[in-house]
Amino acid sequence: MSIVKKIITFRPSFTVRILTGLISMLILLSVCTFIGLADQTRLNVRAAQFDSRAVEAGAKVYFDQCARCHGVNGEGVEGLGPALASEHFVGRIELVTDAMQQQSIRVIKPSERLKQIEWSGTLESYIESVTAAGLPVKTSNLWDVTHPTFSERFGGPLREDQIRDVTRFIINYGLDPLPNDQALLPPAPGEGMAPRPTPVPLTPAQEAGKQVYVAKGCTACHAIRGVGAQGAIGPNLNKIGAVAEERIASESYKTNLKDQPPATTGAEYIRQSILYPNAYVVAQCPQGPCPAGVMPQNYAQQLTPEELDNLVDYLNSLR
């Protein structure tokens, strides 16, 4: 009798059936019992894991949406947004795990900022509501823009779960917050409403360059304080004159294009960046590594030589 035949004619006896059935039921019950015994701990462990993954997901949202105005390290960006990683804002927290593996956030030092603005809820509720619904009014002249609405509900790009994730990410800064003197703090209520210092007046050429900047649609992607729309795709140009000089002085500066020699002055760098955007791409953007080829590469055709000169002159004056 071959083994195959043995298998296909398999017919267990009555005793074997009853015993196998009973043993199976016993196994089933013991599996359930063991799962039940360890269940609370496992639920807590999983909850902590999903909480950690929420921080990861929140980091992605932060780098995609928030870092441009609040800084790659949450340190704040002048003219755009205050620090979020500062002790002033997030306070100080620690993660506590109890004997049942349940993890919770313990506040060691509450947020000074919330006390300052007399927010009666939690830090979590504050971050969530500001992220979702924005700040409809300007509280100081330090920033050019009010906080936009980010929730889908108010016409923004983020779902509710993404807002919760990014909130969890920001609260996580509290484990090791930036000292207040390394961060851009917001002004206290009532402060910072004074008029801004008068900027250095522009020359007629620079004034014409400013018109080019607005008219040629640069504002769709770039932002300059107080000038037209505040685009969020390309880098902020508030201080591009100073930044350009820093760039060419840095060690990693080189051009990717064979026919484009490295710029030697800030103005040259700006001109090259407009005409050949891929000649040099900065390594790090708020959203992560900077992608090449995002900026249109046809400005040599779009701009007259005079427009280009004026534009470069204007941009170079921003310091």
Partner: peptide
């Protein structure tokens, strides 16, 4: 006969399922 047979197969199938998930 058939009932006990079926109960046995049911028991074994669900035990395998439970062990797999655990």
């Amino acid at each position: 006969d058939i009932l006990t047979n079926e109960l046995m197969y049911a028991g074994v199938a669900f035990a395998i399922l439970a062990i797999s998930c655990a």
